[in-house]
Nucleic acid binder design. Structure first.
Lengths: 323, 323
DNA sequence: TTGTAGGCGTTATCAT
DNA sequence: ATGATAACGCCTACAA
């Protein structure tokens, strides 16, 4: 009978006594409202799809944590998709999210969103995080990649480095493009020909960091500094240098990307670019949940928000002259 | 018309031509089946709730990754709950999971499942992972904590250590209890009085690891070895020792728990107990999904599976005599 | 204050 | 081979 439903949803017309009775009975029986049924009536779910390339990456784990907390506070739950940057997995998960009628999707897209992914995203509110891969809407929260790398590069140039190796993700990722742009900007603004810049661009993995170091050590003119444009790459670089017994910063200066604890503990502690992932994720979550409540007709079709990174100076950088 | 539904679900009675036509039209319109509606008809969802204390912990991140992959392969999606070991958050999320009619729940429970959590779990298939906190069903996948710690302790005792500090999670967690048990077993089997064992049990955090080190350094008789019973604690121990300028293993032997990469890279590399979390998670996922397909009447009511850990010997342990 | 009825999208069943 | 119908659980407009 409808009295029950009304009591549970706290309808004003129901007496307090009845409400208590009903609530008690519900508790007793372990009754829990049926979300799917609610949704069928047109209500929307409290699920937000979160699409990440990799949850073991510190970077994305922090994002998941911050998003999850923020969303939880407003009653939203996270459905997790880990794509491994595979567009096929990505499209499959998006399709499922749409099928499950999630309230919205927050995604760190793979380099190449499939056509179908884009079509599917058209059917559901979404926002891109960190990376921007085109798509139906122009909604994006990210860090100012270009500025961050420009400052890091400038730091190295100011220390006198003229032969710098830049190891990062390829330009297929939007972040890769913007970061490389920043590196170039630093050279340009100082009027230094970028010919002395060696770039090693590929997948943002520690494996690639290691391989890049091996390649650059084989170069006729060995760089005096390495600049990393990805968290995992940083790890690979450091391990490879240690294995090659190249002292930091004695024989090689290093600036890392991202700031897990070990950057501080490492001997010597690593200078890093620290992107504000916490606040980025929180901002994104809050903005997105607000948008989910915004009536269709008032929605903006374009929104970009960039946060700036910090350059954390530690002892892993030195002047090339000191060698 | 019902022909459409049949065509999409591949009913045998529908001609191939019609099917193709329908599929094409569906594709065209971007039609995606409505999961909530399907569920209302009694079908079950393809969502599995995953409850973890903390996704930034390497340990749990690996589990999330492995579970997610295994589940994905069979079409299941993960709804993520991060509890921060807070029983209130936990019960809220479990309630939501039940409300969303997830197919099942895989959980690393907090120390104290609330009564309501237990009642709710009664309504949905579930399995506990790593920790076991009682509850309606007696289904659990974990590591053989006792054995792992016994072997690690034995290793230290065999090296001649007689004054060992054990830093770990409190006995409120099932894992904490079993691990302490293992430590004691090692002493008992060797007939060594455990009076020389100093235990520092509290929350499994790096903060606790640091504080415990400070406390033990203030002891009249400083231990010659530290044994960690938690991944985060390990990190805290190492940082605190470095800050106190105590050399490993010169002045203090250390055995860590868990095996993130930095254990290997740290100078000197850290000897660790490596629990087989990958295989644990995969085993658990496969078993659980199989169970979800098992008819009610054939379900076992009790199932325990423990995997054994490896002891990875590296250079962070030495003999007390060498000092 | 409480009851009734209808509809959300899907699919199993029954009828054509 | 295809169409019509009922039912799942919830909510709400309307009736009593």
């Amino acid at each position: 009978m409808s009295t029950v439903g009304r009591a549970l949803s706290g309808d004003a017309r129901i007496s307090e006594r009845t409400k208590h009775a009903v609530r008690a009975a519900a508790e007793e029986l372990g009754y829990v409202g049926n979300l799917p049924a609610r949704m069928m009536r047109g209500g929307s779910s409290n699920l937000i799809g979160l699409i990440l390339p990799d949850i073991q990456n510190d970077f994305f784990a922090s994002i998941a944590q911050a998003l999850s907390e923020s969303c939880d506070r407003q009653g939203y739950r996270i459905v997790l998709s880990i794509t491994g940057d595979d567009p096929e997995t990505e499209v499959r998960h998006i399709r499922d999210f749409v099928g499950a009628r999630v309230a919205g999707i927050i995604l760190v897209p793979s380099a190449d969103l499939k056509r179908e992914s884009i079509a599917l995203l058209r059917q559901v509110p979404h926002v891109q995080l960190l990376r921007y891969a085109g798509g139906p809407d122009d909604l994006w929260f990210g860090i100012d990649d270009s500025d961050a790398m420009e400052r890091a590069t400038s730091h190295l140039l100011d220390l006198g480095h003229r032969s710098i190796a830049y190891v990062a993700a390829s330009e297929r990722l939007s972040t890769g493009r913007r970061r490389l742009e920043g590196v170039h900007n630093a050279y340009r603004k100082r009027g230094i020909p970028p010919s002395s810049l060696a770039t090693f661009l590929d997948a943002p993995t520690s494996t690639w960091g290691e391989r890049a170091v091996h390649e650059m050590l084989a170069l006729p003119e060995r760089p005096t500094a390495i600049l990393s444009g990805s968290a995992h790459v940083t790890m690979g670089i450091i391990v490879a240098l240690r294995r090659a017994q190249i002292a930091i910063p004695g024989q090689m200066s290093v600036i890392g990307f991202g700031d897990p604890n070990w950057c501080e503990w490492w001997q010597p502690p690593i200078t890093v670019i620290r992107p504000p992932i916490q606040s980025l994720a929180v901002n994104c979550a809050l903005w997105f949940m607000d948008r989910l409540r915004t009536p269709e007709e008032k929605l903006v079709r374009s929104y970009h928000a960039t946060s700036s990174s910090e350059l954390i100076l530690r002892s892993s950088t030195g002047t090339p002259a000191s060698r």
